[in-house]
Every structure is written in C-alpha cells, then in structure tokens.
Amino acid sequence: MSSVANGTPGTPGAPGTPDAPGATDTPGTPGTPGTPGATGTPGAPGAPVTPASSRIAGAFAEHKALIAFLTAGDPSLARTEEYVAALEKAGVDLIEIGIPFSDPIAEGPIIQQASLRALASGTTIGDCIALARRLRARTQLPLVFMTYLNPVFHYGYEAFFADCEQAGVDGIIVPDLPFEEKGEMEPFVRAHGLELISMLAPTSEARVARIAREARGFLYLVSSLGVTGVRESITTDLRPIIAAVRAVSDVPIAVGFGVHTPKQARELAALCDGVIIGSAIVQRIGASPATAAADLSAWLSPIRAALE
C-alpha cells in the first residue's frame, strides 16, 4: 500500500520561517470572524466612525480626490518612502501602496515589472506593513494597500488586519476578491477598523446596485476592459454605472485604469469623485528611480490643477 501524500498545508513549501511579524503557522485558517483581536472594534454596520474611514472620507471631502498608486519596494523601501513624501507634496489625497505579488493577473506590463522588481529587492508583506507604520508616523494621508488575495490569505486574515490596524493602514483593495467572495475576508477588515474597497467594471451592469449598497470607503471604478496600463483614451461611457451607484449610495467613486493626462482627469472628475493614477507613476519610477520623486511632483501638478 503506497502512502497517501503527506500534504501538510500548514507548512509553507519553501525553506525558511515566515519572517513577517505576526505571520501565522496556520495559513488558510484565519481566526473566526467575530473574534477580533483585543484592540479591534466590531465592524457591524452602523459602528462608530473609525479614524481609518474618516481619513478615507477626508480624501474626498474638499475637492476631487487624486489617488496615487505605487508598488512598495520598487526599487527599494527607502525610495518608496521618498516617493510617498513627494506624492503628498504634489497634492495627492490618498496613497495606494501595492504589496508585490508574483502573479498579478489584473496588471499590465508596467505594474507587473514593478512587482517583480520589488520582489527581487526582497520586499515581504512584513516589510510593507512596517513601511506603512513609518509613513503613518509622519503623515495623516489615507493609506490603502492594494494586493492579491494569496499573500494576505497566507499571512492569515486576522494577523494581517491586526498588523495593518496597528500600523495605521486605512483600507485594502484586492482585485481578485470579487463581491461574491468578500465575506471570508471583510469581517476581519472591519473588525480592525479598515475598509475593504469594492471594485466595479464596465461589465458590472446588473451587479452595480448590489455592490454599491455594500461599498465602503470609496468605490474603485475600472475605466475600461482589460488590465492596468496607460491608455490614450477612455472610451467606455461610465455615466450609466455612476448613475446606478448614485441611486443607491453616497459612497465616493474614483476611476482608475489608464488615467495619465490632465484632460482625462478633468473629464472624469466631472463625472465622479476622484481619479486613480497608477501605471503612469510606476512607469516614471521604473524609468528613473533616482529622480522620480522630483519628476512626479512636477508631472502631477497639472493633473492636480485639472481636478480643482
């Protein structure tokens, strides 16, 4: 009788111990929803407004929000800190920090390569949380992680969001966690006072109201079919989707995927509450890491102006 394969799902396949603070020995078996860590606030609907949600709301309070994405650790964590400072100076209202993942299926080549550069420089999830903690020590900008589900799942939902709360992270965007599957993660997000940012796409049609009703923080509206990247023009008519959201929710709507010019920003801002710029920023970082901080400030200023 041959032995049954000795599957040991609790043991990571690679040698080495998880070095991330709070990494769990039992990936994939997060704690029970409803038993948050000692510092957590139960995230029932109608729970008191947390600092996280108020920071995100603040990004949309005064004007159309400018949201910037960059990948943590590309090309180094020290550089990422420098770029965030520059982005804040350039008038960015919310920072999306990408936790690098080996196989980012929703990303075009620019962000794929940034993820690989960040991983090649040794960036771990623990490093990204520590980065957020350092950033939070010096800024009140809302900080939202963007990553794929597997790294978070592997870290353990409870451990991850407890560490995020402690570091001062305000929310998370997970492109491969659609509405239908969010139930397994959202209780942990809410229990630790963060917001799970929902996404809508041009194909969302019949799903818009359902998603918008449960959306918190802001709604990430994907401008076009396809992956992230720099698009010459955005041809999708987003007005019906935006109207469908407005009919059921006051949640701010930010449009991303392809945005990179003041003209696009101005046109989109007329329809929604903010724009998200990712690939165009990451491209500048990739092209010239040493001068990107100064370059980004100058490059973003007409876009910032277009949103006023």
Partner: peptide, 25 residues
C-alpha cells in the same frame, strides 16, 4: 499536494506551491 499550502490563485482556492510570503513558487 506533497509540498504545497492552501492558497488562492488563478481564480480558485486550492493547494499551491508557494513560498513563506505567499508568493507563487
């Protein structure tokens, strides 16, 4: 099965060869 851990990738929850940080190996 012999060496992987539970995870979520390519649209499904299953077992995957991955490293200590949840990167696909």
């Amino acid at each position: 099965i012999a060496t992987g851990a539970e995870g979520v990738f390519h649209g499904m929850k299953s077992y995957f060869c991955q490293d200590a940080d949840g990167q696909i190996a």
